[in-house]
Design a protein around this nucleic acid. Structure first.
Lengths: 201, 201
DNA sequence: GTCTATATTGCGATAGAC
DNA sequence: GTCTATCGCAATATAGAC
């Protein structure tokens, strides 16, 4: 964002961290406008209201998500490689923008009106990529017959997201972690591969 | 709760599902009082305000959590058995009260003023039990040397909680699951045991 | 387009009757 | 202790000057 970006863009980029930090109803339009250095009335003028701005923020966020996960559609990768990229993609996504997935996860826990219109079609796409990779891995005999692909996908998503969801304060206090362990993606992949593989442990 | 329970108790039990569903700032004291069938003024009279009621709700919730996890302190159990009880304890906890862990997870994601005073000392205790079991399992040689107990604890907590955190709507739409798969605790334990065990996969 | 000023609503909390 | 009535405040949204 340039310093003299349009008011529209300044509102979106100012609202993003506020919504991410305090949620929709915990953030006031006055606060957003003050941070953006614009008049509160501009918010209604450009977005029709607080909800419209929130929706615009969600859409701008998703561009970054799409960017990160577009590599999953790459051709010629074995399913297990796609799964690995998926897990590492989550970690790089969170590292690049700590507020982003907290935002998304909050929306999962407390859906707003944008949930069905903005998020569902887009998240389904990403979830489908992961599920598809797991199904393919199973078809290739890499994964035990007894393992439900849906459940396996959930476990991967859980392990890759939960530690970011709980936030820095909880990580430090509950888990004694100043930051997310560097080797966590490797551990997740190791646990997943060993846990569902056809080799007997 | 009896039908003519005291106003105090009615306020707590009425506020609980509302706070769980819509969060602290998404719930109004008028709404709570209406649901409880009492006067909004009673809320300030008994709890000094909305925050005081919220704190009382958190404390009442935690009694159920303590009840569920008290069995983890049972003597004479091998560490891996304690870990298994921990995972199954999360699932039975969520099954018994779907709102409860959503409540707790929301507090993790968006700490209120009660976070440090009410939750931290109590959650630390539960987290310590899990971490301790993992450390013991490692001491007994059940878990690979390279596995960090903190990270392993996080993965267990992730897998046991995330699927509940995302809520029924998200489970259905993103994951195609009407309800949480019955065999998920078993899969989690299998994945965990195989994933971190000293046996080569 | 962007501003000031304000309309309108809903909030949490309280004063005071009973 | 419990109620009605209301205070004071902050919220979003809008009207209208420029």
């Amino acid at each position: 964002m340039a310093i003299d970006a349009g008011i529209r863009e300044r509102l979106v980029s100012s609202a993003r961290p506020l919504f991410a930090e305090k949620g929709f109803c915990g953030t006031s339009v006055r606060e957003i406008a003050k941070r953006a250095g614009v008049n509160p009335a501009s918010l209604s003028y450009y977005f029709g209201g607080k909800e419209g701005l929130y929706e615009a923020v969600l859409e701008s966020l998703w561009e970054e998500v799409d960017q990160h996960f577009s590599l999953l559609a790459a051709e010629g990768l074995r399913p297990m490689e796609r799964i690995e990229r998926f897990v590492r993609g989550f970690f790089s996504l969170h590292a690049a923008n700590p507020a982003l997935v907290r935002f998304l996860n909050r929306e999962l826990a407390d859906p707003t009106s944008c949930f069905e219109t903005v998020l569902i079609p887009r998240v389904r796409k990403v979830a489908g990529l992961l599920r598809g990779a797991i199904v393919e891995a199973k078809d290739e005999g890499m994964i035990k017959e007894g393992v439900d692909p849906e459940a396996a996908a959930i476990l991967l998503a859980s392990m890759s997201n939960y530690v970011f969801l709980v936030g820095p304060l909880a990580r430090k206090i509950f888990l004694g972690l100043e930051k997310v362990p560097e080797g966590l993606p490797d551990l997740i992949l190791e646990v997943f591969r060993n846990g569902v593989s056809t080799h007997e442990a």
